[in-house]
C-alpha cells in the first residue's frame, strides 16, 4: 500500500518519497514540499480534512486530496 501524508496520525512524521508531479501545485514545492524533506502532521480538522502539516519548517494546511498524492516513508518511534 502507498503510505501518504494523509495516512499520518497526529504528531507522526515521515520523509517525502515522491509525488505526482502533474497534480501537485508548484506552490507546495516552493514551500519545501520536496522529496527527502520531513513532514509532520500537526493537526487534523474534523473528518480528517484539511490537514495541518509542517513540511521542512513551513507550517501549512492542505486538503486531503492533495495529501493523498504525497508519498512518504514513515519515521518510526519518534521522540
Amino acid at each position: 500500500m502507498r503510505f501518504t501524508v494523509a495516512h499520518l496520525k497526529r504528531g507522526e512524521r515521515g520523509i517525502i518519497k515522491s509525488f505526482d508531479q502533474d497534480i501537485l501545485p508548484i506552490k507546495l514545492l516552493e514551500l519545501g514540499c520536496l522529496p527527502g524533506n520531513e513532514v509532520e502532521l500537526i493537526q487534523e480538522a474534523p473528518l480528517r480534512d484539511p490537514l495541518y502539516i509542517n513540511v521542512s519548517g513551513s507550517h501549512i494546511a492542505i486538503r486531503r486530496t492533495v495529501a493523498l498524492q504525497i508519498e512518504i516513508e514513515p519515521i518510526q518511534g519518534h521522540e
Binding site: 514551500l31 507550517h59 501549512i60 494546511a61 486538503r63 486530496t65 492533495v66
Partner: peptide, 9 residues
C-alpha cells in the same frame, strides 16, 4: 480545487 494556506506563527 487546490487549497493551501500558510499557518503563520
Amino acid at each position: 480545487r487546490f487549497f493551501m494556506v500558510e499557518m503563520p506563527n
